[in-house]
Design a protein around this nucleic acid. Structure first.
Lengths: 332, 332
DNA sequence: CTGAAAGCGCTTACAG
DNA sequence: CTGAAAGCGCTTACAG
């Protein structure tokens, strides 16, 4: 165990500097020297010590991804995509679950894992980015999600207003008149998506009905199921529902199945996220599909660019492409 | 930025050794000295450099979790639970996605991330643990899953034979006679679960019918849907199906819905894993529910115990408690 | 192209 | 209880 650089140097008959040069792919090394060193590395099964390297260089090639919960399908899929995108670039991702708690989010930003991390991709829930300053982090940070970056950070996000407008317009095009929305409360996600929802109604010359706009405590199946029950209890229930994420929609579908209502005949349902569950559900779920690979790739690229010291003081705001995936929950 | 231990020492008017003692909670420090140091730490917003600490101590308090894919619900839920369990003990988890590829698994074990990691929790897919030696890892390793540890490693796993026996027996108790199994092929998971399935049939005095045992390429919804189509094409289709994980079951349910068959009236379905999707599906999915919190907690505890140098040469094999969750897919 | 040496920020015997 | 010093394994100016 514990073979060191100097062991490799001794075996290859060169200086440690030369070995280091080979490992780090520096120029000006003869092919013969390189071969000798590589043979020694292989023979000794040498692995560089990342702690030492990181201590010396001030860079670790580790980045953090802070998300509310990795057990949630959207974040699980996103985390998987970001890990893959980072690995392609030789970077390792540390995943932090904040559970959406302010203290945990603060801790992640504050600590930056004792300077091990080179930068962070942060999906805030409790923390308002506007309240953050770069002093809080000390290291590059890329924001994910709806919350405005306040011009202080780079950010990559779906155009949620536009996407919600698209989803609602689709429901309208089906001839639905009473279109409910689930998930309006609380988070800024709710506020932004409601904006697009209302905008679409307005464009169609329809007023929005506050009774059809349901807040949700969380964005889980449980919340969607409960909200749907409320909607069904209305004197005049909706004929369509736009749920602000797929989990809410899946919960709503469950309530509709229990109530014996047909989807989409009695009520059409649209979600947001395009998680795998929705594609296989019966009925399969019509949803807004953000390009997660694009998101992952660009978030990582943006962060690495910052870490490399590029970009200056102007912050970039990237819009993730999205499409509307029409499936059975609106199209029979 | 970059406040160092010596800065804290200077400000507090003590030696670096004393500051280090305070940070590491060593005894023999007067309350007054401790207060002075803590004030200086707070004033300077000092954070210890983990690279330096890890280099010096040879321990990082980081462990790795190597799983096939974190986007898959079971592993996402498990990863979340393991991260939480580790955090409770002051340990950080690095998640490695191996995609079930042999090379990636080898890389994780080999590299151990350049000695940064103190140990690993490993859920192998391609690598046979029997082929591993502790020399491959050099650091403590805890195995997850069906594959026998060959007496060389600690392991924590569900008793899959028993669980599969339970699932099949439940179907039998419902009076079903043609009980199919999906997922028998390829992995050792398939082999082990088939063993329990056949055992239950045998105990009930029923022969097993090879035509009803379907191999699956993967353990995803897609595979379950395809296998179910094959079963329905049989001259005499089954009246019950035991799917070796929930994703397969969810795919099978999709096929049944498309075919217009009623669950459980026409065909009863049981899964394995108890992922959240199954609980909200309509019909909700009867499944084997392994105690994931227990699994996470014990896997982490076991690994930390090893890292601490305990346990000697005898390896422990822990059995995760499981229950059968009876839901609509078998109980109307 | 290579060698000898300093230093990244800690922890830890070793003296006092 | 505290101080001065070595050393963990690298990378990197600095000379040659």
């Amino acid at each position: 165990m514990a073979t060191r650089l100097s062991d490799v140097a001794a075996r290859a008959g060169v200086s440690v500097k030369t070995v280091s040069n080979v490992i780090n792919d520096y120029p000006h090394i003869t092919a013969r020297t390189r071969a000798k060193v590589e043979a020694a590395i292989a023979a000794l099964d040498y692995k560089p010590n990342v702690s030492a390297r990181s201590l010396r260089k001030g860079r670790s090639d580790f980045i953090a991804l802070a998300i509310p919960e990795m057990g949630s399908p959207y974040f699980a899929e996103l985390g998987a995509a970001i890990s893959r995108a980072a690995k392609r670039r030789g970077i390792t991702v540390l995943i932090d679950q904040t559970e959406g708690e302010s203290a945990a989010e603060r801790f992640v930003l504050d600590g930056m894992r004792g300077q091990l991390i080179d930068g962070i991709i942060f999906s805030p829930l409790a923390t308002a980015p506007a309240k953050l300053t770069s002093a809080d982090t000390g290291k590059p940070l890329v924001l994910l999600g709806e919350r405005p970056a306040g011009g202080q950070f780079d950010r990559v996000a779906v155009d949620s207003v536009r996407a919600s407008y698209d989803a609602t317009t689709h429901l309208l095009s089906l001839g639905r008149h009473r279109i409910a929305a689930i998930g309006v409360g609380g988070t800024s996600t709710g506020a932004v998506r409601r904006k697009g929802y209302r905008k679409a109604l307005k464009a169609a010359g329809m007023p929005h009905d506050p009774a059809l706009e349901l807040a949700a405590t969380g964005y889980h199946r449980l919340d969607g199921a409960a909200s749907m029950r409320e909607l069904l209890a209305l004197p005049e229930p909706p004929d369509a529902v736009f749920c602000f994420n797929d989990l809410l929609a899946l919960g709503a579908l469950r309530t509709l199945a229990d109530a014996g209502l047909r989807v989409p005949e009695d009520i059409a349902v649209v979600g947001f996220d395009d998680i795998e569950d929705g594609r296989y559900h019966s009925p399969s779920l019509t949803t807004i599909s953000p390009d997660k690979e694009w998101l992952a790739d660009n978030a990582v690229a943006l962060l690495l660019d910052r870490i490399a010291g590029n970009g200056g003081s102007t912050h970039r705001d990237l819009t993730v492409p999205h499409t509307l995936q029409i499936r059975e929950s609106t199209a029979g």
